[in-house]
Design a protein around this nucleic acid. Structure first.
Length: 425
RNA sequence: GGAGAGAUGGCUGAGUGGUCGAAAGCACCGGUCUUGAAAACCGGCAGGGCGCUUAGUCGCCCUCGAGAGUUCGAAUCUCUCUCUCUCCGCCA
């Protein structure tokens, strides 16, 4: 959520930034609502001052037992206070409308974000490692996995439906190994604190991080409750500190959280229907930071490098792109995507997305910090990034480490997590 | 699921219709004292919004879990909701 005051005093900047995102939102109504709000508040405050003054007279009348004065004031005030209540109802209506507007306005892109319309305009800023060379035609992960008996899509369909998978034997073990490996790296080498949160959250939490109200359709909802399956650990972990004021000496707060993620994938019909790439349920290790506004972009760079380190340890070829203004997520001010090389599909695929939300989420969820004990609380900056998407990492391992005979070599760093095993065959 | 109790500032906790945005204690911050620290003493210390001819050690307004109601006036009375705790039952 943007700051109403800032929107009103920087109308052009906001309108311009919406255009950059390819959004055609007219904010003139919001501006006039804001004007109305201010006028009404001034009126109500004046009336209340008067009301409080007359009430003080009544107190005196009561203490002096002056009943005639008391009676005359009473009838006078009854209408007066009703009038105030009516104005307050009107104000409430206006404020609801204002928030309805603000909740649907995306974040303003950081000045360093390249201008563009779609993923075509994203800019590659880094490339690490080399494409692996094969003396044979590399296969898709679903072919590799099904032949090894470690991936089963058909039976998953039977018990749930499309966009689900069953991992079996060494497949399930590899998934678990990846989770464990990632958590160990981030907690032991990068200083993140591990969090195991609820996998279902309420509407308030979903609104705090920006999923709701605009993207309600993307989440699974438990009927008859206010519980929603989390689409990412970002939601519970960021909201961990909602309605809190943190001491600035604690910043940055760094959390890592492995959770399953649930996405309805509404609007993705026909996309990535085969394989593990796009599932209704997948595992992800998520990095979340609460940072001081003055260095949140440095924190974004280190978050990105923390995520990249996992791919480097696994020796997987990848590139990093900066998302352009038109391709960025709703809440983000700047996003890097990490894309891993998938030889079976002869392409780079997103495996992590690292964003700085600045104060967009912290304003919604009310997460503040205090510079020193005497200063006013300010909104801090929130960041997060996948470190990494586990299912897609498993895909990358299968496709990059496949052998001609259909077996898959286990990357060295994972072997301790696989009981010392070197190969899946 | 059944029965009961409760929700007040960073924390503990007083407050049952007006002078209460709120006692007291703890924590924290500043000061006096001290070679330094502690103790003691003094002072400060909730969040949000609006205004301004003086942008301030400024003025005003709101907020005692949330919402609605009674009343001239609600932390205090009534109703609804949410959450927490205790006991019993059930259960991974």
């Amino acid at each position: 959520m943007l700051d109403l005051k800032k929107v009103c005093s920087n109308i052009e900047v906001v309108q311009e930034s919406l255009k950059k995102r390819g959004q055609d939102i007219d904010i003139s109504e919001l501006i006039s609502l804001s004007e109305k709000r201010r006028e009404l508040i001034v009126k109500i405050q004046g009336a209340r001052t008067e009301l409080n003054r007359i009430n003080d007279e009544i107190k005196i009348a009561v203490s002096k037992k002056d009943n005639s004065l008391l009676e005359s004031r009473r009838s006078e005030l009854k209408n007066f206070s009703q009038n105030i209540k009516d104005m307050e109802k009107e104000l409430d209506k206006i404020e609801t409308e204002i928030s309805n507007h603000l909740m649907y306005i995306p974040n303003i892109p950081h000045f360093s974000v390249p201008l563009g319309k779609s993923s075509e305009d994203n800019q590659e800023i880094k490339r690490w490692g080399k494409k692996p060379e094969f003396s044979f035609e590399p296969k898709n992960h679903w072919d590799i996995g099904e032949r090894l008996g470690i991936l089963d899509f058909e039976r998953a369909t039977k018990i749930a439906g499309t966009r689900f998978a069953v991992l079996k034997g060494m497949g399930a073990r590899l998934e678990r190994a990846l989770i464990d490996f990632m958590l160990d790296v981030h907690t032991k080498e990068h200083g993140y604190t591990e969090i195991w949160p609820p996998l279902m959250v309420n509407t308030k939490a979903m609104t705090g991080t920006g999923q709701f109200p605009k993207f309600r359709e993307d989440a699974f909802h438990i009927e008859g409750t206010d519980y929603h399956l989390i689409p990412t650990a970002e939601v519970p972990v960021t909201n961990l500190h909602s309605d809190e004021i943190l001491d600035s000496s604690l910043l940055p707060v760094k959390y890592v959280s492995y959770t399953p993620c649930f996405r309805a994938e509404a609007g993705a019909a026909g996309k990535d229907t085969r394989g593990l790439i796009r599932q209704h349920q997948f595992n992800k290790v998520e990095l979340v930071k609460f940072a001081h506004p003055k260095n949140s972009y440095d924190e974004l760079e280190s978050l990105l490098s923390d995520a990249c380190s996992i791919l480097e340890k696994l020796n997987l070829h990848y590139r990093v792109v900066v998302l352009c203004t038109g391709d960025m997520g709703f809440s983000s001010a700047k996003t890097y995507d990490i894309e891993v090389w998938l030889p079976g599909q002869n392409t780079f695929r997103e495996i992590s997305s690292c964003s700085n939300f600045e104060d967009f989420q912290s304003r919604r969820a009310s997460i503040k910090f205090r510079e020193n004990p005497k200063s006013k609380p300010e909104f801090l900056h929130t960041l997060n990034g996948s470190g990494l998407a586990v299912g897609r990492t498993l895909v990358a391992v299968l496709e990059n480490y496949q052998n001609e005979d259909g077996s898959v070599t286990i990357p060295e760093v994972l072997r301790p997590y696989m009981g010392g095993r070197e190969i899946i065959s």
